[in-house]
Write a protein that binds this DNA or RNA. Structure first.
Lengths: 302, 302
DNA sequence: TTATCTTGATCAGTTTATTTGATGGTGTTG
DNA sequence: CAACACCATCAAATAAACTGATCAAGATAA
């Protein structure tokens, strides 16, 4: 007989081991576990056989843990706790906590606020795994559809009767360039002037062709960046001009490392972030909580 | 029948769940596990019953994980890994790695070197739990005896034929005060002069009364600190004078925030740290390794 | 010291858990 | 449509776990 034991320990043996140590003897452990003493003895022997080593030293009157046994006890306890956690998870799911929750947000939104909300959620020790996905413009909605996310925070208006849309407080974007860029000196620039320069824009991750013309304008020579971090760096290197969320360039504007463009069409633009969820799917407790915290953090539309 | 189930999951069911997902179907999982398809079905049902919730959605042709099932899979996998770890531990113990190893060291020894050694050990991913205890002077030997530690690094010579003693490279201590302390100005101070001031000393944690007079000298007004960190702070606050391990005050001496006392009896003193282990106990692999690394880090006595 | 108690092992017999092998319904594939 | 793969289900077989009784040895108390 070839002995290729997978060495599987089993939780019941570990539970018995733990009880024996806690209660101090096989017999009292048996009492605590509603078993007979011989059943306890059996489980201990089984554990020792599975491990291939003695867990108790029986040379004395009372069985004492061997050094190995002590470590097994400690590690086994961890195992039991983990097992307990697994079952408690299920209970919590039964109480309305969803196993997972996906939130898609637009990268233009102030990430500090978003992280604050997520930290609050994490601190509550909720059983739900929350997945955050960052997309841009149309990409948000697309991801929401495709990945079956529960919530999204988008800037692109949509009309689907199966969706619940809650407008949040407006966000401002501002048209900026580096101070050494030629456009920084322009007073009351017209669109035609802008078109002679490179516009920096964040790549819309949706593949949809047509979307409202307001996202990208001008646009003879457009340079695409993957996100606003990269875009800000490019702007500061005077690679071109472009729109940035106000909160992400406030300190640069104050420090003068970026300046607001004086554009006739208006150098500021307002977006309305919208918190969207599906009406045809029930909201779990984590989704409910997250929605409330987002509304609180971002403020309702006035 | 009262249903007060403790909700115990069992590892076998989780193993089956994991295999079903990996293999893609109940039948192929059965093949992989050397069971029949109906045994797999049975285990899955058992798991679902134990958890009180569906793990697979059977409405489609192939069974698909429910959202809850996905989380159970992930957490269950962690559980299985942990279980695997528990059995692998035992294998390693069988290969000569001791379950635990206690090292008692004198707090006067340079802690950076000690930590470097411990980090090296930790990086090797050894199954042994290494416990470090810091004591002072006679307290080291006492703890070694009493707690049954495997190794110690002590400064106090001892003669026990059952111990193996390996001398390491000498350590230097230096007599220092704060520059604003009156003693800082003293030239060639004698013992009588020192005795007029407060001596700071680390409390010997052993309760033994008599020990070699060299540890604490002078000693009319002695102030006891719990460790060298506290002692250094007290010294810098000019609370008194005292011996410090050279390596712990080197930067202060250079910066001038502490100065070496000009004492006729010699303002430097050498200690010989000794690595001690028991001859009557076999050394495990971790103890062997740790000894080697300590000798390497601290250097052999020349 | 003896009588009594506790500790844990062991064994035959019983109960319970798990597996098997066969069958059936349903959806998929070529 | 025929052949196949998916999973459920059931009775019977097998394996695992437990019981209750008994034993030897160390502890405990009169």
């Amino acid at each position: 007989m070839v002995l290729v034991t997978t060495m599987a320990v089993d939780l019941e043996s570990l539970r018995v081991l733990s009880t024996v140590v806690r209660e101090g003897s096989f017999a009292r452990a048996a009492l605590a576990l509603n078993k007979t003493q011989s059943a306890v003895s059996y489980q201990v022997h089984k554990l020792e056989q599975q491990l291939g080593t003695a867990v108790f030293d029986r040379s004395a009157y009372r069985a004492e843990l061997t050094p190995v046994g002590e470590r097994i006890l400690v590690e086994g306890q961890r195992l039991l706790d983990q097992a307990q956690y697994v079952s408690s998870l299920v209970e919590q799911f039964a109480e309305g906590w969803e196993p997972r929750l996906e939130l898609v947000v637009d990268g233009m939104l102030p990430s500090a606020r978003l992280l604050a909300v997520l930290k609050e959620m994490a601190d509550l020790n909720i059983p739900t795994h929350i997945q955050l996905r960052v997309e841009f413009l149309g990409g948000v909605g697309q991801r929401f559809e495709q990945a079956g996310a529960e919530l999204m925070l988008t800037l692109v208006p949509l009309s689907d009767t199966r969706l619940s849309v809650q407008a949040l407080a407006d966000l401002e974007t501002v048209l900026v360039v580096a101070p050494e860029h030629p456009l920084a000196l322009a007073k009351g620039a017209e669109l035609a002037v802008l078109q002679q320069h490179v516009e920096l824009t964040v790549h819309d991750s949706s593949y949809s062709k047509a979307h409202g013309g307001t996202q990208t304008f001008g646009g003879e020579r457009v340079f695409y960046l993957s996100d606003f971090r990269a875009k800000k760096e490019a702007l500061m290197m005077a690679l071109g001009y472009g729109w940035m969320p106000l909160d992400q360039v406030e300190s640069e504007l104050q420090a003068g490392t970026l300046v607001e463009l004086d554009y006739l069409g208006g150098s500021r633009h307002r977006y309305t972030p919208m918190l969207v969820r599906r009406l045809d799917q029930p909201v779990g407790r984590a989704g409910q909580l997250l929605s409330e915290k987002l509304q609180q953090q971002f403020g309702l539309n006035s």
